[in-house]
Design a protein around this nucleic acid. Structure first.
Lengths: 143, 143
DNA sequence: TACCTTTACTTGCATTTTGCAAGTGCAAAC
DNA sequence: GTTTGCACTTGCAAAATGCAAGTAAAGGTA
């Protein structure tokens, strides 16, 4: 896996560069949990339905932090807990995740949406996304 | 890699299921080329900037076809050429790809957008996407 | 008809990434 | 000061990826 952003890119294409940061089977699921659940600690993130292996979780968290999508902090209430928060850059992936969800729901009827909030329509799309981003910022970006 | 849709899923989560279909470093790039360039044959798809290995390209094309995102057809003008076309399900990934592109362009100034068409704003978003999907349908879904 | 080229792959093998299970280190509770 | 909970590491097997060379079959050419 890439260590940081300094490593050179496959190409200058925006899609390709995005995939270098989040184009694996786990990164977006971690971001999903940070966006739609209250999971913030390593142990909580490990307990998702998809059962990510512990070493892979550690590696993905490192790479997400190196790419500036999440930020790690020690839990002020409990020094042995680390907590992970979304950065603005991470929050900005909300539309990508929403579109992925809508795609699956359209083409795979037995899929479940991972959050019951965020019912988007063509009309309210911008407002709902803006509001949810604001909520995420409030939860994640407070110093 | 998964063979087809019959294999059981990691979870019922829509995001997770989407990633099972396209959550690797190459599938979306192939779809990108089918969406934004006139590349349709194996050889053309192999010539992208990112230099996909030939066996990986073959594997990804198979898996994309098995998942119903693309369709393979023999070139009527040249029996030794195969052509690959997007299905409706594949075309429906356009918004995902667009959002990925916009995310990178926002956070990585030196990225290039892979197509100069499709300048989206909050206001024209729906119309532009609809029009581009229609164009793709005309190019890919004509029998 | 025989040969040559183009096109789409396949194959074999090295490297990298993933996955599993067990182990380590350290802060806090008891 | 011993135990416990939490966040990781480590070691090794399995799978995916990447590279280079090879194969098969349609079509063109002599």
């Amino acid at each position: 896996m890439k260590k940081d952003e300094e490593s050179c890119h496959r190409s200058a294409c925006a899609i390709s560069m995005a995939l270098e940061a989040i184009g694996d089977k786990w990164s977006l699921l971690i971001l999903r949990d940070l966006m739609f659940t209250n999971k913030r600690s390593y142990g909580e993130l490990q307990s998702s339905d998809e059962k990510i292996a512990t070493n892979i979780l550690a590696a993905r968290l490192q790479s997400l932090e190196a790419n500036g999508l999440i930020r790690k902090a020690v839990d002020p209430d409990n020094g042995r807990r680390s907590l992970y928060f979304l950065t603005e850059k991470g929050i900005d992936l909300l539309p990508v995740i929403i579109e992925l969800r809508q795609w699956t729901e359209k083409h795979n009827p037995d899929a479940e949406g991972c959050t019951n909030a965020l019912k988007l329509t063509d009309k309210n799309r911008k407002e709902v996304l803006t509001a949810y981003k604001k909520k995420l910022r409030a939860e994640h970006c407070k110093k």
